[in-house]
Lab assay of single mutants.
Amino acid sequence: MMAYMNPGPHYSVNALALSGPSVDLMHQAVPYPSAPRKQRRERTTFTRSQLEELEALFAKTQYPDVYAREEVALKINLPESRVQVWFKNRRAKCRQQRQQQKQQQQPPGGQAKARPAKRKAGTSPRPSTDVCPDPLGISDSYSPPLPGPSGSPTTAVATVSIWSPASESPLPEAQRAGLVASGPSLTSAPYAMTYAPASAFCSSPSAYGSPSSYFSGLDPYLSPMVPQLGGPALSPLSGPSVGPSLAQSPTSLSGQSYGAYSPVDSLEFKDPTGTWKFTYNPMDPLDYKDQSAWKFQIL
């Protein structure tokens, strides 16, 4: 009977010793046993002879290597770790002494450095960015050149030099007046198309007034536009458009034309069986010896 009264063996659950049927240790109110408190290391007290050895090595170098620390530790009968900690504390003490010396050398008012006064946003004049500046400075420094007289040679050079070769001289006033084509001369031969040399188009003023001019072949195509416009036809070669000034309004060009419109200028042929003959000019830059190549039959 006494065997049943004795408590059973101890069981360990999660490293906790349980005594038989008792489960009081598993209750929430019972805390787990805490780790033992780490003991504080005792402070090391250095003797005068030990301090002399350490100070002598510190005077040589503030960062001794492990071999120098072990050698000193053997002399003063201390572990190497204590020597390492002593050098660490000695360097910190040396830095603190240097900072105190710097503070003593500075004057009393030198510690508080005078800061520059901050400028207020409204006091300083700042350039306004509302208006974009002129990058080319046209509004201040540029002045347009004065327009020359209508009959000045410089204007003629600016007008005619675009179309004339570089080897030719500017046309005088008398020749510029001949550039304007007359109405009857352009409409006299509506079906004849003559190819003149390129030099005649640039230099010869008579080429624009003769039936064999460069633009005589364009007349049949330009004249039928007159009834559609409801007024006189516009002429690209009329009046002052080739003269001194090219800047004319469309209203000033509306009254200039080749001449009176005639039914002869239409595109319809009077004789459907007729042929169109292209007159060959020996001055043509295209060297075609066979003139029969310039004739064709309209079917």
Rank of each mutant, 00 (worst) to 15 (best):
Y67I: 05
G209N: 04
W163E: 01
C202L: 12
S266C: 05
A207K: 08
N281C: 14
A59I: 08
S150F: 11
Q99M: 09
Q62D: 07
A117G: 09
D290I: 15
P147I: 05
K75Y: 11
L229I: 10
P282D: 02
A293F: 13
A68T: 02
Q103V: 06
P236H: 10
T251K: 07
L18T: 01
P147W: 10
S241W: 15
P272H: 11
M193S: 00
G217Q: 03
Y280R: 06
R40Q: 09
P31C: 08
T251L: 07
S223I: 14
K289Q: 06
P36Q: 05
T47E: 14
S34R: 09
A117S: 07
S266W: 15
P127L: 09
T45K: 01
A200I: 13
A15G: 08
D24M: 12
G137A: 05
V66E: 11
P107N: 05
K93F: 15
P227Y: 13
Y258Q: 04
S139T: 04
M5H: 00
N14H: 13
K60F: 08
N14L: 15
S128A: 08
W86K: 14
C94D: 04
Q97C: 09
S262W: 07
Q175K: 11
L253H: 07
A92E: 11
P153Y: 14
S141H: 04
S150E: 06
S223M: 11
S245P: 02
G122D: 02
M2P: 01
A73W: 15
P250Y: 14
F58C: 13
Q106S: 02
A174D: 02
E268Q: 04
L237M: 01
L146K: 11
A158Y: 12
T47D: 14
L18M: 01
A260H: 07
L74G: 07
A158S: 02
S124C: 06
M225P: 01
S19K: 11
P36W: 14
G178Y: 12
L179P: 05
Q84W: 12
P145W: 10
K60R: 01
K277F: 12
Q50K: 13
P227V: 15
G122S: 08
Q106L: 15
S150K: 09
W163P: 00
A114Q: 03
P263A: 13
M5L: 13
P149Q: 03
A121N: 08
S216P: 05
T123V: 09
V264N: 02
T273F: 10
L246I: 04
G230H: 12
Q291F: 11
E71V: 08
E55G: 09
Y258R: 07
A158D: 00
A260V: 09
G137M: 10
R98M: 02
T155S: 01
M5Y: 09
N14T: 15
G151V: 02
T279A: 01
M26C: 06
P205M: 09
S241N: 06
S210A: 10
S188C: 09
